[in-house]
Design a binder for these strands. Structure first.
Lengths: 215, 215
DNA sequence: ACAATACACTGCAGTATGCAGTAATGTCAA
DNA sequence: TTGACATTACTGCATACTGCAGTGTATTGT
């Protein structure tokens, strides 16, 4: 049982689903904390059936059959056990940041494009969460008794997306003064920033970093 | 060529390394934006050699040989091309958040343990970055001309880790009032939070969420 | 002199992804 | 009512990636 297995099992604990429905539901929730490919969401429930944590049965819709997966008692026991084993450390995958780290190979325009994409992707994610929340207020939560969990979970995403957007603005302000992506090294500005972060302070809206013009 | 290939290739662009050295360097940089297993960091350079983006030669250290990988001109061209192709959207993997989303299967203690682990893991990551920055101030950057990039990159990690720590504090404050992990649903408090985040505001230090006692 | 730690890998089983392909059903508009 | 296009519902296959166990040498500290 991997964490992905438990994630799917947890969805099955809510109600029976087809693999297709799991992909839809994962896009609304799992995605923000445990992103998995659509392909995998089709394979995982089969494994759960093999392990005895779920059962499957076919339903007929006209000429087409669909496989519905349902959690077993054994599956519920496994889920309960899961809650008391140690968690894995968090990991962020952000190609745009990787491009910044190795920005020397491209132009400032390339770097700005990466920032733009990072911003667009983040805005889209934020919008999905905001829409979800607006839906909750309209009573559209599919499992109303779970709203307290979904909402606290969502607060994290929102704070995170806001931070990313603010940071991108900051980063654009910094790179705006760069003549090129290369060889700037430990200049005055960079040293100031290094001191600030080495002391554990925030660089966003830090008065020490204010610029004369005020962007 | 996957993004992982380009990440390793970018490291090779700095200087020749053994796979072992790549694992060390990845732990100081790549890890924060493109985490890859140690195992993979041994396999990837071989693939780069096959593709003609790197070469390898053996060096002797006593009875032991080490394989040193070096970027080729073709590899540098590939790197430059990489800077202008679209980036993948960011993805966060956080098992602790997954435990929150499905906290109903465990106790409040289980949930608090997940928060504790999340906090410890985050603190360790922050400390590594702070140490790195302190080193830069002592002139310990292995590629001094690249400091501007490493530092701007690091600002993101620091802001992010601070946010996570602040959010955990907030989440602990919220769950402290819960009688159990289950069935609290859309109560008054949750509705207030939902309204705040649906309107795009921050929940951290939000005066609307102040509690009488003041934690 | 010995132990512990760092260096330098490899094989293998299993997990996960991306893409292409298949096919039926539902929806809307000309 | 026919055709186009989106949605539902999958599978196979090649490739990417991980975790673990195993192997052996070199260096450092006690």
């Amino acid at each position: 049982m991997t964490t992905s297995s438990y994630a799917i099992l947890a969805l099955l604990s809510l109600r029976p689903w087809t693999a297709y429905e799991l992909t839809q539901q994962a896009a609304r929730s799992l995605r923000y904390a445990w992103p998995k490919s659509e392909r995998h969401l089709y394979s995982e429930p089969k494994k759960l059936v093999e392990l005895g944590h779920a059962t499957t049965h076919k339903e007929q819709v006209g000429k087409r059959t669909r496989n519905v997966y349902e959690i077993t008692d054994q599956g519920r026991v496994a889920l309960t056990e899961w809650t008391s084993i140690p968690t894995a450390p968090p990991q962020l995958e952000a190609e745009a940041l990787l491009r910044l780290l190795f920005a020397e190979h491209g132009t400032l325009e390339d770097l700005n494009t990466a920032f733009d994409e990072f911003e667009t992707d983040t805005r889209e994610l934020r919008q999905s969460v905001v829409d979800l929340m607006a839906g909750y207020l309209e009573g559209e939560h599919p499992f109303p008794e779970r709203t307290h969990l979904s909402v606290l979970f969502a607060t994290f995403q929102l704070e995170m997306f806001t931070l990313i957007e603010n940071w991108i603005e900051f980063a654009r302000g910094e790179t705006a003064d760069w003549p090129t992506t290369k060889d700037l090294g430990m200049n005055e500005r960079t040293e100031l920033i290094t001191r600030i972060i080495a002391s554990g302070e925030s660089v966003l809206d830090n008065p020490l970093l204010e610029k004369p013009d005020g962007h």
